[in-house]
Design a protein around this nucleic acid. Structure first.
Length: 259
DNA sequence: ATGCCTCTGGGGCAGAGA
């Protein structure tokens, strides 16, 4: 089975590239983030033509997550256990579904904006709720995977120049502790290999030639239960998808599993 | 080094992204 995750930065704007990518890479399950699309407007028909069922959770202009599957899509859950609000509102950032015997979650962790910004406190609360949800579902003890845009670089090597991140989110100790909590709960991070250069970055800013200069960050992550992690035969970042006109600023991460 | 920011909603710009 092939499971992938991709922050598409608008499913509407990315639809031609999304359908081409699905035909080229043919994942069985794809987690999407940053749909920027109402559920009513989600391009269900175009994906059904390619054999995919869709579970989406979106409210328009910002955020939005989905799971696409061609190996079944059951027990859809929108949102986390005791999910926190921001400015009094819930945001569509997590959706779970059972696909081909694996419980899969697509997540879009809040950015945080700055360590002294209320969005950062929201980010840490949100990560607590994600951990609580994984534990409530017994994630470590069953075929289980959480994939998405975590907006956290797990280690200093996961950004192109750590010295530029002294006052930044994405690299702080509390954020990394939240990732460690997922590992402490029994999940394992599946680290992909890069197809070029030495680091498997997944995001490059649109500005200032960040992609050709490889000024990237590894913030799109995959966590899996031991029963899934043990079947991983390959994991890689599809940097080809970051090239050219109309690309997302994130590249897909692909996991190949035996059986 | 595959290219100097892009997306949406709602109007001629602003907010968000990380």
């Amino acid at each position: 089975m092939r499971i992938a995750t991709w922050n598409v930065n608008s499913v509407g704007a990315r639809l031609p590239r999304l359908t081409a990518w699905l035909e080229r890479v043919a994942p069985d399950v794809l987690c999407l983030q940053e749909l920027k699309c109402d559920d009513d407007a989600f391009p269900v028909a175009a994906l059904a033509e390619l054999g995919y069922e869709v579970a989406c959770h979106g409210t328009g202009r910002w955020n939005g997550v989905a799971v696409l599957s061609r190996v079944g899509l059951a027990d859809i859950t929108r949102g986390l256990v005791d999910e926190p609000t921001y400015s009094g509102a819930l945001q569509p950032r997590a959706i779970g579904a059972t696909c081909g015997g694996v419980r899969v979650w697509s997540v879009y962790v809040p950015n945080g904006r700055a360590p002294d910004h209320p969005h950062y406190a929201y980010k840490l609360r949100w990560l607590d709720a994600l951990d609580a949800t994984v534990r409530a579902e017994g994630g470590a003890a069953r075929p289980f995977a959480v994939l998405g845009d975590f907006n956290i670089a797990p280690a200093d090597d996961d950004v192109w120049d750590i010295s530029l991140f002294a006052e930044s989110t994405h690299v702080t100790e509390p954020e990394r502790k939240a990732l460690a909590a997922l590992s402490d709960g029994g999940l394992r991070e599946v680290v992909p290999r890069p197809l070029k250069y030495d680091r498997p970055y997944t995001y490059w800013d649109y500005r200032q030639l960040a992609f050709p200069k490889n000024r990237g960050m590894r913030i799109d992550l995959a966590y899996a239960s031991p029963s899934v992690a043990e079947t991983v035969t390959d994991a890689w970042v599809d940097r080809e998808e970051r090239k050219g006109k109309g690309a997302s600023d994130h590249a897909p991460v692909v996991l190949d599993l035996s059986g």
